[in-house]
Amino acid sequence: MEYIAKLTKLKGKELSFESLEDINVERLKTVFGTSDNVEGLITFKDKRALSDRQRKLYRALLNNIYEWSGEPTDFLHEWFKEEYFLDKGEKISTANHSTNSKSDMNELLDIVIDFIFEWNVPFKKGYELLPKNESWYLYQCCKHRKCAICGKKSDIHHEEGLVGMGNNRGAYNHLDSKFISLCREHHVIRHTMTWKEFEELYKVQPIKLDDKTLIRLNLMSVKQVREIKENENGTTTD
């Protein structure tokens, strides 16, 4: 269930929002059993107009897909716009007069990059334009095990460097950890320098992964995630 709201107060970790639409409380109770203590995901939207850099990246990625598939870029453009509409329930325009925001365009790019990773489409020049310092891109690299630096097949690198060095992988709480997807070559390079040096050189940074992604990548099991959350909430399961 998604609702649009405006941030009205921010103090440390305490946030207050004013909903811009009516919330169906009864549906909340039906889905969650209560309207109290419901967890949600907060997304801050960048309402600035989409940029020429985003358009340039979008066109480059469509050209990559065209060279791989043979489908005309006009067809691909309309197809991805339809995918966006089916996912978001609203239309998007990349034209110069577009009223869509940078966040909207990032969501469209997310769909395109997801397609490219899923089908192993060669990046070529489009890869050089990817915003490697943005979390949505870094997430896709982890999700599809693609190197965040070169796009090659990769493994998930644990920021703290603890896993695989005498630690129990199954017992480690990855919900509090940060990750980055690196191929073997860049993984080796990473260990020749500090994290700060590595981040400054390649303009990338590790990110946290949600529980569903950790499970999907076999970094944690459903049981491990459930037990950690139950311990945090002070509950137990028979």
Rank of each mutant, 00 (worst) to 15 (best):
F17I: 10
F17D: 06
F17S: 06
F17C: 06
E18L: 07
E18V: 08
L20G: 15
E21I: 09
D22K: 12
D22V: 09
D22R: 12
D22W: 07
I23D: 07
I23V: 12
I23Q: 07
N24S: 12
N24Y: 08
N24K: 09
V25Y: 01
E26L: 09
R27L: 10
R27H: 08
L28C: 08
K29H: 05
K29C: 09
K29R: 14
K29Q: 11
K29P: 11
T30P: 08
T30W: 04
T30I: 08
T30R: 11
F32L: 14
G33P: 10
G33F: 02
D36I: 15
D36Q: 14
D36P: 10
N37A: 10
N37R: 10
N37V: 10
N37K: 12
N37S: 13
E39W: 08
E39Y: 05
E39D: 06
G40M: 06
G40E: 06
L41T: 15
L41P: 00
I42T: 06
I42V: 07
I42A: 10
I42E: 00
F44W: 09
K45G: 08
K45E: 15
K45R: 14
D46K: 03
D46Q: 14
D46N: 14
D46M: 07
K47Q: 09
R48F: 12
A49G: 12
A49N: 15
S51I: 11
S51Y: 13
S51G: 13
D52H: 12
R53F: 09
R53I: 03
R53A: 11
Q54P: 06
Q54Y: 02
K56C: 04
L57E: 00
Y58T: 02
Y58H: 09
R59H: 08
R59T: 01
R59V: 06
R59K: 13
R59N: 07
L61A: 11
L61T: 01
L62C: 06
L62I: 02
N63K: 13
N64Y: 00
N64P: 00
I65G: 01
I65C: 00
I65M: 01
I65D: 01
Y66H: 10
Y66G: 00
E67N: 10
W68T: 03
W68H: 07
W68P: 01
W68K: 08
S69N: 05
G70K: 11
G70F: 02
G70V: 01
E71V: 15
E71A: 07
E71L: 10
P72D: 07
P72I: 02
P72T: 04
T73I: 10
T73P: 15
D74G: 13
D74C: 13
L76D: 14
L76K: 11
L76V: 10
L76I: 12
L76R: 14
H77P: 05
H77T: 12
E78S: 14
W79H: 09
W79Y: 13
F80T: 00
K81R: 13
E82K: 14
E82C: 05
E83Y: 02
E83T: 01
E83M: 03
Y84K: 05
F85P: 03
F85C: 02
L86V: 03
K88H: 04
K88Y: 05
